[in-house]
């Protein structure tokens, strides 16, 4: 598919999301707006900074949530494959609960019920809403990432682990040096998927008062209702660049670590 085609698709996808977000109060003027309107584009670019801050928030939330999701989700997946007893059961149940709960509910629980504190890092501090956002999105991502890793760890042939043990590696070492490197390689496609989902789902943090990219876009076209399409296109382009570059980077990582296969058998 051409880059332009992909861009158009991404725009349509984001439009859908925006349409859902605005379902309660449909902005007027949508029918009269037309994309080439110079005044509206000028309005968008005048507010690029405002949207830029939203984009940074989106990126920050995504990166932090994906990282937290990995740090928690990878061991969780490993426990589901190699663990037993209470630990395994606890991990499985936690995963089912997290995957079965709407993300808005998770965020609201984190923010209003658990009441996570503001985190002070000296140079900067992370607001408690931001902390709640990262924890909520991160833990939910962990629940999904654990399933990616559970599947890829289990997909590595048992003979690999056995061969590792046959030269005297402990079970942990055999998993660490033989199974994990192969499973991680197989996890890249699932991980790309998960990244894209988390990136788009960051918009949900409006529920706890954070204004990331999409929320800010909504604020803007509520202000100037003739600029709906221009704002949406601009935002979609940002989402597209983020997804595209990250997926390309993961593709590169995948081919760099791809295991060579010869023609001979």
């Amino acid at each position: 598919m051409s880059v332009a085609g992909t861009l158009a698709l991404a725009a349509v996808e984001s439009l859908g999301a925006a349409a859902r977000a605005t379902a309660g109060a449909p902005p007027t003027g949508l029918s009269t707006a037309f994309v080439g309107d110079a005044v509206d584009w000028e309005f968008v670019f005048r507010n690029a900074d405002y949207l830029g801050v939203g984009a940074l928030l989106t990126i920050g939330l995504t990166v932090a949530s994906i990282l937290l999701g990995f740090v928690v989700g990878f061991p969780a997946g490993a426990v589901e494959v190699y663990g037993d007893g209470y630990l395994k059961r606890a991990v499985t149940v936690a995963g089912i609960v997290l995957r079965g709960t709407p993300i808005v509910v998770i965020l609201i629980v984190m923010y209003f019920v658990v009441g996570v504190p503001q985190i002070n890092l000296g140079v900067a501090s992370i607001s408690s809403a931001m902390t709640a956002g990262i924890l909520g999105l991160g833990l939910r991502s962990a629940a999904y990432q654990s399933q990616i890793f559970r599947a890829t760890l289990a997909s590595v042939d048992d003979g690999q682990l056995e061969a590792g043990r046959s030269i005297g590696l402990s079970r942990f070492e055999a998993v660490r040096y033989v199974v994990v490197p192969q499973a991680l390689r197989r996890s890249i496609p699932g991980f790309q998927n998960e990244f894209t989902i988390v990136l788009k789902d960051t918009s949900i943090v409006f529920a706890i008062g954070l204004a990331e990219l999409l929320t800010r876009g909504y604020d803007l076209f509520s202000e100037q209702t003739t600029a709906v399409l221009e704002v949406i296109l601009f935002i979609s382009a940002i989402y597209f660049v983020l997804t595209f570059t990250t997926n390309r980077a993961l593709d590169r990582l995948g081919s760099y670590y791809a295991i060579p296969e010869g023609e001979s058998t």
Partner: peptide
């Protein structure tokens, strides 16, 4: 032990396969 199905570590070169035990064990 030598296996019927070889069970070589698929992500490692020939040297990597043979060196893993001496290195880690």
């Amino acid at each position: 032990m030598v296996f019927q199905g070889f069970n070589l570590f698929a992500h490692l070169t020939a040297v990597g396969n043979v060196a893993l035990g001496p290195r880690r064990v």
